[in-house]
Structures are given as structure tokens and as C-alpha cells.
Simulated assay, not measured.
Amino acid sequence: MIGEIAAEALEEAGFAVFSAASAEEAAVILAHEAVDVLFTDINLGGGDGCDLANKALEAQPSLSVVFASGRSRRCHGNRVPTEAAFLAKPYRLSDMISEVDRAVRGTAYQ
């Protein structure tokens, strides 16, 4: 449900959105679609957002990644690439939209 709300907010902000219910489903989308930004939770059903992002970056090196997690960035250690943006939960939808917009423009910051 949270993913649906996030996708709807991003679509309302003007972004084209592909939604996935699991890491496996996201991997299929990423294998067939060129995307600018991967917005993912670190803890996913059926997989791990860090693993998903690393595989996606191998296939699409220019991909920007925005992670979300209920735990701090520090808790995830070096699993979260330093160049990836990070949103700590809970976050405001406006903050998510701003971070995705920065990532699209290549100006994301941690």
C-alpha cells in the first residue's frame, strides 16, 4: 500500500513510474526498461534492495538510486553505495519527490 501511495505521488508530480511488488518483479522491469531512477526500500519482499540496486547498476551504470529504510544509513554499512541518495522512514511524500527529482537531474545528495 505504501508503494502504491508513493507511485501515485510521483505520477502526480509528473514522473513516469514502473511499480513492482517484489525485488524479482523489479529486476524483470529493470531488465526490459531503461529507467533514470530506481527508488527502492532496502528491505523488500522476495529480496534485498541493495542487491537489486547493485545488479541494476551493473546493467545500467548511469542509473541513479534512491534508497528508503526504517533504519539509518549507517546501519546498512557499505551495502548502500555512497553515491546513492537515502531517505530515512518515515519521510514526507514531498521529500521523496524532491529526492527523486534531484536524482533525475543528477544532483542527488545523501
Rank of each mutant, 00 (worst) to 15 (best):
F67T: 01
E11G: 11
P61M: 08
E99R: 13
V66G: 04
A21W: 02
A16D: 05
F67W: 08
I2W: 12
F18P: 00
V80A: 06
V80E: 02
L93E: 04
D48Q: 00
A85L: 02
L10Q: 03
L10M: 08
F15N: 02
A68I: 01
F18S: 06
H32L: 09
H32K: 15
A27K: 03
L63D: 04
A108W: 04
F39K: 02
L44H: 01
G77Y: 11
T107L: 14
E83S: 14
A85V: 02
M96G: 06
A108D: 07
F86T: 00
P81Q: 12
F67H: 06
A108V: 12
Y109V: 14
A108H: 10
A31G: 11
V100S: 04
D48I: 00
L57G: 04
E11V: 09
R73E: 05
T107S: 15
V80N: 02
S98G: 13
Y91I: 03
S69Q: 09
V17S: 05
A108I: 10
P90D: 05
M96K: 09
A59L: 15
I5W: 06
E99M: 15
A88D: 07
G106S: 13
G45S: 10
V66K: 06
A68C: 13
A103L: 10
E83A: 13
V100R: 03
D101P: 05
V28S: 10
E58S: 10
V66T: 03
C50V: 07
S94M: 10
Q110T: 10
A53K: 00
E99L: 14
R74S: 11
E8M: 14
E99H: 10
I29A: 03
K55C: 03
V80Q: 04
G47A: 02
A23K: 00
A20M: 04
